[in-house]
Write a protein that binds this DNA or RNA. Structure first.
Lengths: 229, 229, 229, 229
DNA sequence: AATGAATGAGGCTTCATTCAT
DNA sequence: TATGAATGAAGCCTCATTCAT
């Protein structure tokens, strides 16, 4: 049930940690509570948070409307209960490596890192697609969410990725361009693939391996043709 | 008042057409109507469509609540009145060139095209930032919007950009990779810059010219280090 | 429409001030608003504030439930709108006399004062019976109400009545007992009559003049038998 | 644990009856039930019956919500269970004397009666303050309560006090004024003291003996100055 | 006996929309 | 054309009460 694997390897202990997270978040819930969460994820992602009526969630979850409020004091709290744990899990593969404070880059090349990163996060995004949609939709309007995202997710991921990037820059695998720009290029390209893959053309018959190859190659070598330089 | 210029050049006729669009949308409006639109843009982008009360729009627009419904039958119609024209203008630089059916690529190189494209759309996005935010937020939830976007914007832009891309592919300026991938790479990188620039770090002190140079270079040559250079 | 007269006299100017108060509070209301207030007074006094449903008020007032909230943001605000002005009018006869800062006791004897006071406040209580009931019921539970009552009503009335009492004490019309006790005796007896008259036995066939005579006499001479007679 | 003593004497048999009442109401209760009653008294008197949530009572009583409804079918029944016994005990000193049908006035003077009455009921009110507050608050809104109060309390007390009063009227200790008026004067003055003492100024440093002396004297001789003394 | 999860009716309040002026 | 009072459906949430454990 390791719904999330690590960027580098799929070592057993990491899966265990992942599962631990999942367990602490979901295992000790009652069936009704799980059903409420699932229904809420469904409807929030379909209609948006503000446009969703708690009565509809209740109906889809097959519980009384009042039951929702036994578990979550307000509708907003329900939103955060959905979104918070997922945000934590967004960054799991980035933080786990760091836990002993030693920089540990388990990749021989930036290319290897890129590929692992995209494969792993594509898998994660596929599994948590609806919740991610909710996060993206609501971050601009929920200060609590935005703050949590900035402090607990974005900054930690950046910190880690900056370290990795500079590691490979020193090894001469990357051109000498300001790190923020390199990050932007890399992340734009990766996210661009994920969004195209999952959001814009989900029904297209994708060959993920091939597309990821192309994307990695694009990031590393651009799309300029041979003759031009 | 040409708040939007063309990708390639700023020829007068194009400005004229742009203005025509503007006129037809704004010039024959009463001051109250304009004020309503401005207020609605403000509040929609700040709170989201569903979370916005028409009463708040009325208050900010300094009109009576009922006045809004003189001009727009429903709240949703008001949304579409804001978003529709902007979507048309999103694609202005792409469609204008094509009006006589002849393929007309007024750029000597893909690089030139890229630069013009990014500069131009950055300017556009800066000027229409709030509306674009609304479009992005509401497209997933408003079928009418999504349909209009798909048919009137995306497909037309793609059609045009595909033509341009294949034009330069034939000229050997681009590597032989499926056109959709090339489009994805290009658009991801460009949009990645726009979003970072305007949404994620708007307060940072950006040197646009330099960043655009880097971005264009990235797209064409990637970020691979020594081996390629 | 001077629904309230002064303790001492019914001079025209005082009536005018009374009416001014009334006008500023009620005259510029819409019929619906008045109807809401009347219905609320009715139901609040009958069922108590907490046990009253706004829907019932709306029904009795023949307006839509939403209309109530156009005039009063919350149910509690509606309560205060009912109770506040009446509390102001409770003390009207006490404060009016004082407006020039000069102690002005327009009574030749404590007996005259007592009689005027009881007559006047009986009339007031009769007219505002339901609202007074609401005030008494809700003062223990609504801090805002209690505070307003303590600061704007009770302290002002006491200040005035203390002055009057000490005035007659100096003239030898009252025994030399601490003023607070005298106040307590007087007010207990007067209020005791009002409550018995209006609340406990409203349907009894009262001879108000006679009862007030008895009450005043009791206050002044007690009910002791032989020694006084 | 005779928390209530008799007006006249503290004869043992009366205490026994008092305790019997207490036993039948409290001794055969489980600890949980007692805890529920205490919590309910607390919260009802603080927030009012309608504004009190049974969940809050359960929380304060440290029992589950459902437990309350094991003992009391409805919230209203819980109210009556609190208020009923206390109402019975309100009149204990009045009815006990009468049980053999013989008029038995164990006081030599009205003054003695008054003093005993006030002292005794002050003690009672002090001990049952919160419940009395609840009774007063809810009597206007609970027909069951009002009826019980009228039939079981008020009428019995009045009957007894009327007898006592006429007894002393015949002995010439009271002036010849209609008995209801005398009752009203007496009770108003006594209750006025109790309320001022416990409700309006509970934190004031009262000298109860002195105040009761003054009050009794007032009732008997009024507050008229020179002529009477 | 005791629990507390679950219910669903009903409470307060908001809000898009209408309509008489 | 513009207003804003009025509406009432619907939203979020509370709470007395039930019932399986």
């Amino acid at each position: 049930m390791a719904e999330d694997s690590t960027a580098g390897q799929n070592s057993a202990d990491e899966q265990w940690i992942e599962e631990l997270l999942s367990i602490s978040k979901e295992e000790k819930m009652t069936p009704k509570q799980i059903s409420i969460l699932q229904a809420a994820i469904e409807v929030f992602s379909e209609k948006g948070f503000s446009a969703t009526a708690t009565s509809e969630i209740a109906q889809k979850a097959q519980v009384a409307e009042g039951t929702i409020f036994r578990y979550y004091k307000t509708k907003k709290e329900l939103l955060l209960a959905i979104v918070g744990p997922t945000m934590s899990r967004m960054i799991a593969p980035f933080v786990l490596r760091n836990f002993n404070g030693v920089l540990d880059v388990p990749f021989d090349s930036y290319e290897e890192f890129l590929r692992a990163f995209i494969v792993n996060r594509l898998e994660f995004a596929r599994k948590n697609f609806k919740i991610i949609k909710i996060v993206i939709q609501e971050i601009p309007f929920q200060p609590a969410l935005r703050e949590q995202f900035m402090e607990n997710v974005l900054s930690k991921v950046l910190e880690r990725v900056v370290a990795i990037t500079e590691h490979f820059k020193e090894k001469g695998q990357l051109i000498d361009v300001p790190t923020p720009a390199i990050l932007r290029f890399t992340i734009s390209s990766a996210v661009g693939y994920l969004l195209t893959r999952l959001l814009l053309q989900p029904e297209k018959d994708w060959n993920d391996e091939e597309e990821i190859n192309l994307t990695v190659r694009f990031i590393l070598h651009g799309i300029g043709g041979s003759p031009s330089e």
